[in-house]
Amino acid sequence: MIIDSMLPALVYILIFPGFLFLAAYGLFLQWVDRKLGAVMQNRVGPPWYQPAADFIKLLAKEVIVPDACDTVMFKVLPYFALAAVVTAVLPLPVWTDAVYSFQGDLVVVIYLLTIPTVTFFLAGWSAVSPYAVIGSMRVLTQLFAYEVPMMLSLIGPAILAGTWNINEIAGFFAAHKALMAAQIPALFVALIALQGKLERVPFDIPHAKNEIVGGQFTEYSGRLLGFFYLAVDMEMVVGAALVNAVFLGGTLGASGAAGLAVFLAKTLAIVFLLTLVKVLMGRVRIDQMIRFCWQVLAPLSMAQILFDIFLKFRLQ
C-alpha cells in the first residue's frame, strides 16, 4: 500500500520530471546555449556531448577540500542546491498538469529557486579564500537586486488569473491567449531577472573571471564543482519552465507527448532569448546592476501589476 503510493512519487522525483530528466535536459540546454552563442559569434561551438563530457570529467577528478574551510558545509552544499532545484520542478507543468499542485505553489517555487543562490553564497563564504568571499558577497548583493523585480513580475499574471497556483495560471492564459500579449513588460523583467538568477552575462558578476577568478566556486573542484554546475544547468530548465508556465500558458492545454513537445519548444525559445541577451552585452558593475534592477525593472513590474489590477476590473 505504502509502496504503491511511494513508487509514482519516486519516479516523479528521480526520473521524470525530476532529477534524470532535468539533468539530461539541463545539459542539453547548456549545449544549445553554448552552440547558439558560438554561432552568433561566428564560431563553431562545442559538439552536443560536450556538457555531458565536462560533467563526467569533473566527476572523475580529485576533490580538494581546503584545510581552513568548514568541511561539512563545503561538501554538503552542492547536494542542497541540486535537491532544491529538483523539488522546484514538481509544481511546474511539464507535459500535462504539474504532478504536485496546490494553492500558493508559485511562492514555494520562487523560494525553492532562491535556495541554490543561498548555497552559492554559503559555498563561497565557507571556502575562506578572498576571491570566494568577495564572490559570495556579490552573490548576496545581486540576490537583493534581482529577486524583488522577479517576484513582482510574477505577481502580475497571478493577480490577473486570480490564483496563486501555477497550473491554474497556465490554464488561465491557455484559455485567454490574447491576455498574454498584455504581459510582455513583465515577461521582459522576468527574463532579465532570470539572467541574474542564473548568473549569466550581463549579470555574471559573482564569478566574473577577469576580476575574481572563479568567484564563489574558486575553491571547489571535482565532483562537488560538477554538481554545482549541474544545479545551475537544471536551474535554467526550471527557470525557463517557470517563465513558460506563468507568462506563456504552460503546455497550452495539450497533454502527453504533445504537451511535452510544446514545453520543449517553448523552453528552447526562452533559452534562445537568454542566449541573445548573453551575446549582446558586456558585464555590468554590481552598483550599476542594483541601480538598473531597482530603477528600471522594479518600477516596470509595479506598473504591470497596476495595469493587471485595472485590467481585471475591466474584464469583470
Binding site: 552568433m40 559569434q41 552575462v201 577577469n210
Partner: peptide, 16 residues
C-alpha cells in the same frame, strides 16, 4: 577590452 568587460562577442569579432 571586450573580454575584460565580459563582452565576449566584441572579443570574437575583433580577433576574427
Amino acid at each position: 577590452a571586450g573580454y575584460e568587460m565580459g563582452f565576449e562577442t566584441l572579443f570574437m569579432y575583433t580577433w576574427r
